[in-house]
Simulated scan of single mutants.
Amino acid sequence: MSTEAVERRLYNAMWWAKVQSAGPLEVDPDTPAVAGLTRAAAPDGSSVWLVPTLPSGAGHGVLDELDAPPVAVEQPNETARILAICVACCWTDRSAPAWPGSTGTLAQVRSVYAGMRGRPEQSSDLTLIIGSLRRLHATHWLLWDDKAAEVRLGPRVITWTAADLTTLRDLCRHLPEPPAAVLSPQVSPVDEQELEESDE
């Protein structure tokens, strides 16, 4: 085996070890490709996510080894429900791939959740919703911004197959329509500096 081939194997092994340890990784776009890891480019192109490409029909043992459970296991029904709602809120163009989707809001999620339950929102609902969003963020199914109360689909959705997406399209048709998203204004670093200077 050539030196180049050995170096390539070591390089791939290093990245796989990192992914097994930390889950999908956000890296610089210039990072060379890694065998078996799918690249999911961030919407603004500033980074890419390296996501394990799972073998077809991978069982729970393989998924556990890759630290890639099908869905966060704590309160699985509630968590899966919130993931479905976020798909409906963030995958607005369902003729396009799910990744990267668009930004959704907590208000949208709460609205659809209440519609699914067929009753007004209860005080305990928000606790359940936030808990599920955080679990899904921790497992990279979602990218949840606590401060802005905004959510995007996570890099792991890039592994969904065409059959998965067909099922999800059908699911979204049966969910209540989310209201329009009202996003937080984006503050640029220059604006932040000006705000800080004005406070001094």
Rank of each mutant, 00 (worst) to 15 (best):
V6E: 03
Q20L: 07
P43D: 09
V62I: 06
A22K: 14
P100N: 06
G59D: 13
E150N: 00
S184Y: 05
R110M: 12
P189L: 14
L143C: 06
Y113M: 08
I85V: 14
D191N: 10
L195P: 00
A68P: 01
L10P: 02
K18V: 10
C172P: 06
P179H: 05
S47W: 02
P97W: 06
D28P: 04
S198A: 15
L50P: 09
E177C: 09
W91V: 07
V87S: 11
N77L: 04
W160Y: 11
R9G: 01
A88P: 03
C90A: 15
L142H: 01
P178K: 05
N77Y: 05
W144Q: 01
A17D: 09
G45L: 06
Y11F: 14
V112S: 08
T139I: 00
P185N: 05
G59L: 03
D125C: 11
E196K: 13
L168R: 07
D44G: 14
A180T: 13
V182D: 11
D191I: 11
K147Q: 15
V182A: 14
V51A: 08
V73F: 14
L126I: 11
S102I: 08
A41L: 06
L106Y: 12
S198I: 09
Y11W: 11
L126A: 04
R169S: 04
L195V: 11
R110D: 02
L37S: 02
I130D: 09
D199V: 13
R117P: 01
G61I: 05
R173N: 07
R81M: 10
G131C: 08
V62G: 00
A163E: 11
A181R: 10
V71W: 06
W15D: 02
E197G: 00
D67P: 01
V190M: 15
H60A: 14
P100C: 12
A138C: 13
D170Q: 11
P24A: 14
V190K: 13
M1T: 03
A40W: 07
S102Y: 00
A5N: 00
P29R: 04
A98G: 07
R169A: 04
W16H: 12
T105D: 07
A33T: 04
S184A: 14
S46T: 15
E177H: 09
A13H: 00
A80Y: 03
E197A: 13
L50R: 13
D30G: 04
D125H: 06
S21A: 13
R156K: 14
S124M: 11
V112Q: 06
P32R: 07
P176Y: 09
W144F: 12
L83N: 01
A162F: 05
C90S: 15
E74N: 07
V157I: 15
P100H: 08
D145W: 08
P179M: 08
L106V: 10
R173C: 04
P70F: 00
G115H: 01
E196I: 11
R169E: 03
G36P: 03
A5E: 00
S102C: 09
A114L: 02
T159K: 05
L171S: 13
A88T: 08
A148V: 01
D28N: 15
N12Q: 12
R119E: 10
D67H: 07
G104I: 10
D125R: 05
R156D: 08
V34N: 01
G61E: 11
S184C: 13
T3I: 02
